[in-house]
Simulated scan of single mutants.
Amino acid sequence: MTGNDNEVANSPYTLQPTDNPGVSLVTCLLTQDNYSTWRRAMRNALLAKSKLGFVDGSLPRPTTSSTNEAAWIKGNSMVISWIFNSLHPSLHSSVAFFDTAGELWKDLEERFSQGNAPRVHQLKIEIVNTQQQDQTMSVYYTKLKGLWDEYGSYCQLPNCSCGAIKEYAAEREKKKVHQFLMGLNEKFNVVRSQILNTEPLPSLARVYGLVSQEERQQQLTTSKGNNLLEGASFASKRNTNTFNSRQLSGNRDVSKLFCDHCKRWRHTKDKCFELHGYPDWWENNRKGKGKSANSSRTSEVERVDYSPISGLSKEQYNQLMSLLSLENSKGIDSMANFAGLSHEEADWHG
């Protein structure tokens, strides 16, 4: 592309094939409350199209004898259409009869642009009062950054070639960090303290990244905690149901139940230990009863060297004690067997 071609392409009178009256240059439509944002976005779009001169007065209408008059009329009409398409439908009727883009632009500025001092004061109040509350970190930061950017448009940094301007910009950055941290919820107190104790204080972008990382970690921990609570609730409900079922089976009359497999009473085939396996407590109970029985059987009567009963010899007395001990052991075994049977049957049925 030659120099002449570049000049033609960058000329405010040039319309590209993609330029048409139905295009909307910005995505944010102008309403009653967003003029500063809309104005900045629209200025950037017109600059990209080399058409800003039509609205800021730097490109007046040529005289009727000029060869550029027709091109100016076409460009002016195109800019009017672009501005019209970027307005909220409720504003269309109030701007439909402007003849030049400059007049339309000036009318919108007079209607919606607030004075610098009142708006700056309002922005400062909003920045100080902005809190995270129930917003996500992304929503909270985006809202706060929008206020900072608009406030910055009213407070431009002075042109300076010395190092003081860098220090001034760094102080503004620190002020934003503190404002951002002040609005965080209490659940970020730990990460906030860590950031404030860091020297030097991290940049705003770095601080946002650290807090966002903490937010994701807390969300993960909360999710795990909810899963544990759900599991505990399910286990508690299952244990309650099991306890209730055992109570019902314990109160049930099992005297008429009969097992077709082992031919025993007080249980059925579907609960027979011989088919389904013996529980751990079964062998322990059997060993305990066996040990008690063996100790009863193996206990020997202490023999004496004389008979304490008059008329009985030593041998007769010892024989009598042996007979009495034998009878006692039989009675104890019978009682133990009866008690063991009742216990086993109770355990058999849960």
Rank of each mutant, 00 (worst) to 15 (best):
S93N: 13
A45M: 01
T242E: 12
S295V: 02
E199R: 15
N116Y: 02
V55S: 04
L196Y: 06
E103C: 08
Q316L: 03
Y141E: 04
K174L: 00
L87Y: 03
N328K: 15
Q135H: 05
Y140F: 14
W282F: 14
F180S: 00
A205S: 13
A117V: 12
P60S: 07
I165A: 12
A164S: 13
G57C: 08
H267E: 06
S138N: 10
S322D: 12
G75L: 01
F112E: 01
Y168L: 14
S11Y: 02
E7D: 02
V207S: 04
P62F: 04
A336Y: 01
E109D: 11
D280N: 03
K51N: 06
L326C: 05
T2Q: 09
S113Q: 15
N284F: 14
P62H: 08
L52E: 07
C162I: 07
K175N: 12
K176Q: 15
I73F: 05
W72Q: 05
E344I: 06
C272W: 11
G350P: 00
E345V: 06
D5E: 15
I127P: 01
S153G: 08
E315Y: 05
N10Q: 11
H349F: 03
S94L: 04
L341S: 10
N76L: 04
W82A: 03
L184F: 02
T63C: 05
A45E: 04
R40T: 10
A232D: 09
E7N: 12
L275K: 15
K145R: 13
K166L: 11
G209S: 14
V207R: 00
R252H: 15
I73Y: 01
P12H: 01
A339Q: 08
F112W: 04
S236V: 08
R43A: 00
V128F: 10
S86Q: 06
W265M: 02
D253P: 01
Y151S: 01
Q132N: 03
R297Q: 08
I83E: 00
S86N: 06
S153D: 14
G22R: 08
V139K: 13
T67C: 01
P89K: 05
R39I: 06
S81P: 02
D305H: 11
E150I: 13
I125Q: 14
E214V: 12
I80A: 00
G340A: 15
A164W: 03
L157S: 13
V8S: 03
N85T: 02
P158M: 08
P60K: 06
K174C: 01
E230N: 11
P17E: 03
R252N: 11
R252F: 14
N76T: 10
P200S: 04
Q132C: 02
T136I: 00
S66Y: 03
C272S: 08
Q32L: 05
Q156L: 14
S313R: 05
K269M: 10
W72I: 07
S249W: 03
D280E: 09
T27A: 11
G288F: 13
P17M: 05
E214S: 14
Q132A: 03
T240C: 01
E69T: 12
F54I: 04
K287I: 13
K175Q: 10
L144Y: 07
L275M: 09
L220Y: 14
T27C: 03
E103H: 10
Q247L: 10
Y208C: 09
M335W: 08
K145V: 11
C259L: 01
F98E: 00
V79P: 02
S342Y: 06
E186V: 10
Q179Y: 07
Y208I: 15
N6R: 15
S295N: 14
H267Q: 09
